[in-house]
Design a protein around this nucleic acid. Structure first.
Length: 322
DNA sequence: TTGTGTTTTATTGCCTCC
DNA sequence: GGAGGCAATAAAACACAA
C-alpha cells in the first residue's frame, strides 16, 4: 500500500533521528507531523520514540538509548535496522479506548485530532481503530455464540419435554381406546342379545345416540354409538378435563386452545428420524417454541434481532442484522 | 534462559462507495 | 480513481511455564 510505505519510510526516518538524540530533542522532529506539542502524550512516547512503553520493558529500552551512551556506533546500527513495532503506552491506549467507546468509527477530523493529542501518526490511530474494531467483532461473535448456544439448549429441553409429553398422551389415548373398545364389545354382545329377544325398539336406540352426542364432557353412555363417536368423545373428555395436571403453563394451553390438535396427533416424524436433538427440525416445531432473543434476555446489541427464523413471516433462520 | 502461546501493531490485497 | 473499510496475515512484543 502506498500510504503504508510512505508512513513506514517516514517513521523509519524519524525513529532513526530520534535514536540519535535525547528525548527532549526529538520534539522538533515530531513537530513535522504534529503541530501541537501540548499533548500529555506527546514527546518521548510518540511514534518516533517510545521510551517507556510498557514500563520500559522489553526491546523498547534498546530503542531509546541514553543520549550520551555510544551514540555514534548505534546510529550506524539503527540506520540499517528495519522499523520495529512499538507498543502504545498505557495512557495512549486508555485514551484511544475511551474514544473508541464514544464512537468506533473515525472521521478524518477526529483522526487528526486524536493523532495530535496522542502524539501519533494519523495512520497509527486509524490502524488502531481498525484493529480495535476487529477485536470487538471477535468478542461480539463469541458473545453471540454463547447466547445462541444457550438458546439452543433451552429449545432442545423444551422440545424434549414436548416429545415426552406427546408419548404420554399417545399412551393414554391408546389405553382409553382399548378400554372403550372393550366396553363396546361387551355392549355389542348385550345389544345383539337384546335384539334377538326383540326388546330394543327404534325410539330407544335413537334416544341413546342423542344423549351420547349431547353430553359433551360428560360420561358417554355407550350403547349403539358408533366407534368413532366414542373415540372422539373420549378424546374431548380427555382434553377438556380440568383435572388434567399437564396443561398448566401457557405453552401447553396455547397449544390446545388453538383447536389444532395436529401438534399432538400429527404423524410422528420423531419416530422416523428419532435422533433427538441432532435432528431437531425447526420446521416441525410450533411457533411458540422460538422466543425472540430479546425475550430471553439477549439484547446485547441494539440492532441485533435473532428470531431463530421461525414462522413469524418466515424470518430467515439464523439471520440477524448488526 | 528458552520455548511457546497470546496480544498488539502494521501491511497487503481486495472491495465498496463517492 | 482515490479514500476508507475489512479480512487475512506477518512480525514484534509480551507473558509464562519448564
Amino acid at each position: 500500500m502506498v500510504g503504508g510505505t510512505v508512513f513506514s519510510a517516514a517513521s523509519n526516518l524519524t525513529t532513526l533521528l530520534s535514536n540519535q538524540t535525547a528525548p527532549s530533542a526529538s520534539q522538533p522532529i515530531d513537530s513535522l507531523f504534529h503541530s501541537s506539542s501540548s499533548s500529555p502524550f506527546f514527546g518521548s512516547r510518540s511514534i518516533v520514540s517510545f521510551g517507556d512503553v510498557q514500563g520500559g520493558k522489553g526491546c523498547n529500552e534498546s530503542f531509546f538509548l541514553p543520549y550520551d551512551d555510544n551514540g555514534d556506533e548505534d546510529t550506524d546500527e539503527y540506520f540499517h535496522q528495519p522499523e520495529k513495532k512499538r507498543r502504545l503506552s498505557v495512557e495512549q491506549v486508555q485514551f484511544l479506548e475511551k474514544s473508541f467507546d464514544e464512537e468506533n468509527r473515525l472521521e478524518p477530523e477526529r483522526k487528526i485530532r486524536l493523532a495530535k493529542e496522542l502524539g501519533l501518526q494519523p495512520r497509527q490511530v486509524a490502524i488502531w481503530f481498525q484493529n480495535r474494531r476487529a477485536r470487538w467483532k471477535t468478542k461480539q461473535m463469541e458473545k453471540d455464540y454463547d447466547s445462541l448456544l444457550a438458546c439452543y439448549d433451552d429449545l432442545k429441553a423444551n422440545y424434549d419435554d414436548l416429545l415426552r409429553e406427546k408419548d404420554e398422551l399417545k399412551a393414554e389415548v391408546a389405553k382409553l381406546t382399548e378400554k372403550v373398545l372393550g366396553r363396546e364389545k361387551v355392549e355389542e354382545g348385550n345389544f345383539e342379545k337384546a335384539e334377538t329377544k326383540g326388546c330394543f325398539q327404534e325410539p330407544v336406540q335413537k334416544s341413546m345416540i342423542d344423549s351420547a352426542s349431547e353430553g359433551e364432557g360428560s360420561k358417554v353412555s355407550i350403547g349403539a354409538c358408533k366407534r368413532e363417536d366414542i373415540i372422539s368423545s373420549a378424546k374431548s373428555e380427555m382434553f377438556d378435563s380440568s383435572e388434567s395436571p399437564r396443561y398448566t403453563d401457557g405453552v401447553h394451553s396455547a397449544l390446545l386452545e388453538t383447536g389444532d390438535s395436529s401438534y399432538v396427533f400429527e404423524p410422528d416424524h420423531s419416530d422416523v428420524s428419532q435422533d433427538e436433538g441432532d435432528n431437531l427440525s425447526m420446521t416441525l416445531l410450533p411457533h411458540y417454541m422460538f422466543p425472540k432473543l430479546e425475550d430471553i434476555g439477549y439484547s446485547d446489541r441494539p440492532h441485533s434481532s435473532c428470531h431463530f427464523g421461525i414462522p413469524e413471516e418466515d424470518q430467515a433462520i439464523w439471520s440477524w442484522s448488526y
